[in-house]
């Protein structure tokens, strides 16, 4: 006993530290599967792309499709609507983004975005609100013709999902 009292680190300290460390790693290894099982499963991830036929959409009209359980707005904008969206000064935007950054170049008339209000996830109504774009009925967020937030509690512009034009009449979302 006398000897061990003089030592600053004993054999027992070493055993405690290593046991706790190994125990903590083991506990983490067991807890992680229990947490991760709640993340989207393979079946959910498999629904990750949707192809949409856009040949029937007239200028000025829009359709809504479901992608990953969320509505996606595909709006074919008229020239006036595009000009109006582009005439806005970036200083007037809570989340400054140019209209050009929100569409594919050369396909300026097509606005493809998640129809999900960035406040608390409701679906905004089209052709409503103070900026002729969308209006969220839940908590009163107004979006413009580029889907950018202009007024209300939403912090961001409506999200642009990953998408591409497969051919002139087909858009692949995801």
């Amino acid at each position: 006993m006398d000897k061990s009292e003089k030592k600053t680190t004993t054999r027992r300290d070493f055993l405690f530290t290593t046991s706790y460390t190994v125990g903590a790693v083991g506990l983490g290894a067991v807890i992680w599967p229990l947490i991760d099982q709640m993340n989207p499963d393979k079946a959910q991830k498999a629904l990750a792309t949707t192809e949409v036929d856009i040949s029937q959409i007239e200028p000025g009209k829009s359709i809504t499709v479901l992608w990953r359980g969320k509505p996606v707005f595909l709006k074919r904008r008229t020239q006036e609507e595009i000009l109006e969206a582009r005439s806005v000064s970036l200083n007037d935007l809570p989340h400054p983004e140019k209209d050009e950054e929100r569409v594919k170049s050369g396909k300026d008339e097509w606005l493809v975005m998640l129809g999900v209000c960035t406040h608390l996830g409701c679906v905004p109504l089209s052709n409503k609100g103070d900026y002729k774009g969308w209006f969220c009925p839940c908590h009163g967020s107004h979006y413009d013709l580029s889907g950018r937030i202009r007024k209300g509690p939403a912090p961001k512009n409506m999200e642009i999902p990953k998408y591409e034009f497969v051919d002139a009449n087909t858009i692949k979302i995801g």
Binding site: M38, P40, D41, G69, V116, G121
Partner: peptide, 17 residues
């Protein structure tokens, strides 16, 4: 939020949990 949903929106996995 995605973890709570178990999907990319409120969906069947959300309901079961």
């Amino acid at each position: 939020t995605t973890w709570l949903w178990g999907a990319y929106s409120v969906d069947n996995p959300t309901l079961t949990r």
